[in-house]
């Protein structure tokens, strides 16, 4: 009976998760709780020794997500200004990844319901693409251009000025 009460409130327990390609990862329960999907699985007693299977998240992004959640769970409440700054720096370095990984993180964080990471990845994506051309965007995200050339031209004409991409000016003396 004592063991049962311990179980319920024990946040030090490690949660196992399994990537789509069969790799196992472990993180503290508090870290797993940052994912809505994992939290619901834990609440429904689906977290067992075999690990929670994540059918659409591959090992590479999952390793990053486990990192992210572990770091953020350790520093969740009552942050000092320095700790908040450190977490900001961690986020900034964390999200310095190539576009493939960024795309995987976007989709995986969304699937797992990790809100903070979703926002971080979405903002990073927006920062990366805001100065790009539509064609560069299609390449980055593997989007197929389904306009006819005439349709595309028409849309471009409506806001021709928006296609003049200028770099932010540097201060001239």
């Amino acid at each position: 009976m004592a063991a049962a009460t311990d179980d319920a409130g024990d946040s030090n327990e490690m949660i196992r998760v399994v990537s789509s390609d069969g790799e196992h990862f472990e993180m503290p329960e508090a870290a797993a709780n940052l994912s809505l999907v994992l939290r619901h699985m834990i609440e429904d007693d689906c977290a067992d020794a075999a690990g929670i299977p994540l059918a659409v998240v591959a090992a590479k992004p999952l390793a990053k997500i486990v990192d992210y959640c572990t770091k953020h769970a350790a520093k969740s409440s009552g942050l000092t200004i320095e700790e908040a700054e450190e977490l900001k720096r961690f986020d900034a370095e964390f999200i310095e990844v190539d576009t493939d990984m960024l795309y995987d993180l976007l989709v995986a964080a969304d699937f797992m319901g990790v809100e903070g990471l979703s926002k971080l990845a979405v903002q990073r994506t927006a920062d990366l693409i805001k100065g790009k051309t539509p064609e560069q965007n299609r390449e980055t995200f593997g989007i197929v251009n389904d306009f006819t050339p005439e349709e595309e031209e028409e849309i471009c004409k409506e806001n021709e000025w928006a296609f003049q991409i200028t770099k932010p000016p540097s201060r001239l003396c």
């Binding site: 995200f141 251009n145 389904d146 306009f147 849309i155 928006a162």
Partner: peptide
């Protein structure tokens, strides 16, 4: 990329970029 994620990304862009990206594909335009 799922539409709701594209939407979140587009919402964080300057208006000028959003208008330019209407020409990426039909679903973004709509």
């Amino acid at each position: 990329m799922p539409d709701h994620i594209s939407e979140q990304v587009l919402l964080r862009l300057p208006v000028k970029s959003i208008l330019r990206f209407r020409s990426v594909c039909k679903s973004w335009c709509a």
